[in-house]
C-alpha cells in the first residue's frame, strides 16, 4: 500500500522554509535577562525517568533546614512526604516531622477560640507570614515566592533547534536546571554594575539583581550517608525535591505512559491490518 499523502514532500519544504527562517535569528537566550543555565543529569528525566527517593529525602532535608526559613510550600501536605512516588518517608517519621514543625497552624478549637497548634499529616505546610505585606516587610520589599510549583513556573529560552528536538528527547527539566544554576549563580557584580544594598548579584536571575542571599554553602547540612556535602549537591537535591513538590505524580504518569503507548502502538498496528484487509478488495488499491 502506498500512503497517498501528497502533502508530505511540500509540507517538508514549507516547514523547512519556515524553520530555516528561525535559524537565521534565534530567540535571544537572554530574553529574560539571565545567562543560560547548564543542563544537569536527572533521574526523573526522559522516557524511563523516575524520582530517586533518596535524593528527594536529601532535598527535603535541605528544604527543611534552609529554604523554609523564608519560603512557603502551601500546596504540599505533610502526608505527601509518605505517599508513593515521593520521598516515601515512614509515616511515623512524617508524624514526628509535622509535630515538631517550627511553624504552627491557625485553627479554631471546639470552644470557638482561635488557637495555634502543631501541624498534622493532613495539613499543608503552614505559612510563616500573616500576609504578603508582612512577608515583604521582613525581606527588604521582596516576596519569597511560594515553592509548591516553582519547578514548573520557571524556565529559560532553549533557542533553535533545541526547542524542536525537546519534543523528541522529552527535555522537560528547564525549571530544575534553572534552579540549580540560580543557587550556584552568585558572584561578584561586574565592574560598574550597581547592586542595591540588601540585594545580590546572580548570573542567572533575570536582571541579575536578586533579593535572596546566597542560601547554600559547602558543609551546611549533614547528610551522613556518604553523599558529598557540597553546595552543588545540595542545590541538585533541593531542586529534585521541588520538582517532586510541583509534580508529585510524575512517577505514576510515566509508568502509565509506558502501558498506554505500548497499547496504542499495537492497537494502531491492528487498525492498520484491518484497514489493509478491508481495502484490498477495492480496485486500484493494493
Amino acid at each position: 500500500m502506498t500512503i497517498k499523502f501528497r502533502f508530505a514532500a511540500p509540507l517538508a519544504l514549507a516547514l523547512g522554509l519556515a524553520v530555516s527562517s528561525l535559524a537565521v535569528s534565534t530567540p535571544p537566550a537572554k530574553a529574560s535577562g539571565g545567562d543560560t543555565p547548564h543542563l544537569q543529569e536527572w533521574s526523573f528525566a526522559g522516557f524511563l525517568g523516575q524520582y530517586d527517593k533518596d535524593q528527594l529525602r536529601r532535598g527535603f532535608k535541605v528544604f527543611q533546614t534552609v529554604c523554609v526559613s523564608c519560603h512557603t510550600l502551601d500546596k504540599v501536605a505533610f502526608r505527601n512526604l509518605a505517599e508513593p512516588g515521593g520521598p516515601e518517608l515512614p509515616l511515623d517519621e512524617v508524624q514526628q516531622i509535622a509535630a515538631g514543625w517550627p511553624i504552627q497552624v491557625k485553627d479554631i478549637n471546639d470552644k470557638g477560640d482561635p488557637i495555634e497548634r502543631a501541624p498534622r499529616l493532613a495539613d499543608r505546610f503552614p505559612s510563616q507570614y500573616p500576609n504578603e505585606e508582612a512577608a515583604r516587610v521582613m525581606h527588604n520589599g521582596a516576596l519569597p515566592p511560594d515553592q509548591s510549583v516553582i519547578a514548573k513556573a520557571r524556565t529559560f529560552q532553549r533557542g533553535f533547534p533545541w526547542w524542536v528536538t525537546d519534543i523528541f528527547t522529552q527535555y522537560n527539566e528547564n525549571g530544575v536546571d534553572y534552579i540549580v544554576a540560580l543557587l550556584n549563580g552568585y558572584e561578584d557584580a561586574p565592574e560598574g554594575f550597581k547592586v542595591p544594598d540588601g540585594s545580590f548579584y546572580n548570573k542567572y536571575f533575570p536582571g541579575h539583581i536578586i533579593g535572596m542571599a546566597p542560601p547554600l554553602a559547602d558543609g551546611l547540612i549533614t547528610y551522613g550517608d556518604g553523599t558529598p556535602e557540597t553546595q552543588f549537591q545540595y542545590s541538585k537535591d533541593v531542586a529534585a525535591f521541588l520538582m517532586w513538590a510541583a509534580e508529585p505524580t510524575l512517577d505514576v504518569r510515566k509508568r502509565i505512559g509506558w502501558y498506554v503507548l505500548g497499547f496504542l502502538v499495537i492497537f494502531a498496528g491492528l487498525l492498520y491490518a484491518t484497514k489493509w484487509t478491508v481495502w484490498r478488495q477495492v480496485k486500484g488499491h493494493a
Binding site: 522529552q170 510515566k254 502509565i256 498506554v260 494502531a268 487498525l271 492498520y272 484491518t274
Partner: peptide
Amino acid sequence: FALTKDAFAIGLCFIAFAWFVFYVPN
C-alpha cells in the same frame, strides 16, 4: 472503508497525543 482508514489515522494521532500527555505535558 472510510471508517477503518479514519480509525487507523486516529490511532496514529493518539500515539502522538499520549507522547505529549505522559512525557512532555507542559
